[in-house]
């Protein structure tokens, strides 16, 4: 254990890592916005009483929930161009894979949340003359969102961690940049330790927030 730690060899490349972190954030923001938005939409389709709407939505959700994200990213990167003839950039492949995956997972959260609201709430909405869309937007969703907050935050954390998979198709996010530094300077220990700490520092407050939300909204309807 007499290894000489040399973090200076990593920190001289701080701008490389900063670029990586920025790219990670970019992926995170795009994928979580599109993923959660799309998930809400998909969740409502899944909840629909019309079979030809809910079945395709269910098929979509099951396909994307039951295949690994890495397989999806690689598929979009290597296989999609063969079918469509469109060149797929690493960024595009990562965004497609992570977003479509997040849509599938959050759709189930949204569906569960909507289903957890008592039937009477729908009836009450109807009784005062609200349409389906109105009751959904004004009565059901505001209550359901509160219950869904903890699982949705953990989904967000998952997306942030998933963004490292983009390094497999050489998108220059944090891990990819660290790989680069490690191969220049032969300092994998320091490079990967720094990356691990970066993720830890960024995500720890978010994880604490989830705990707080769970305590607040998890059980009761306060």
């Amino acid at each position: 254990m007499d290894y000489n730690w040399d973090f200076a060899s990593v920190f001289v490349y701080w701008n490389v890592l900063a670029m990586g972190l920025w790219a990670t954030f970019k992926l995170f923001i795009i994928c979580s916005t599109l993923g959660l938005g799309g998930g809400l939409f998909m969740g409502m389709l899944r909840y629909s009483k019309t079979r030809w709407i809910s079945y395709p939505a269910m098929l979509y959700v099951e396909v994307f929930r039951n295949t690994p994200v890495l397989v999806q990213i690689i598929w979009f990167f290597f296989a999609l161009p063969v079918v469509t003839g469109i060149e797929v950039s690493p960024m595009m492949a990562a965004v497609l894979g992570i977003t479509l995956n997040t849509i599938a997972f959050s759709a189930e959260v949204f569906r569960g949340g909507i289903q957890s609201i008592e039937r009477e709430q729908w009836e009450a909405g109807k009784a005062i003359g609200m349409s389906y869309a109105q009751s959904m937007r004004r009565v059901i969703l505001p209550q359901a969102l509160k219950r869904m907050l903890p699982p949705l935050t953990s989904r967000g954390i998952e997306v942030f961690k998933m963004s490292t998979l983009a390094s497999v198709v050489a998108y220059p996010e944090t891990l990819q940049q660290a790989k680069l530094i490690a191969s220049y300077e032969y300092n994998p220990i320091e490079a990967y330790t720094v990356v691990a700490l970066m993720f830890f520092i960024v995500l720890l407050p978010l994880v604490q927030l989830t705990y707080m939300l769970e305590r607040r909204f998890g059980k009761s309807d306060a």
Partner: peptide
């Protein structure tokens, strides 16, 4: 729980 599994694997 907060570090990506890929980073752990590389480490």
């Amino acid at each position: 729980r907060t570090t990506p599994p890929l980073v752990q694997l590389f480490w």
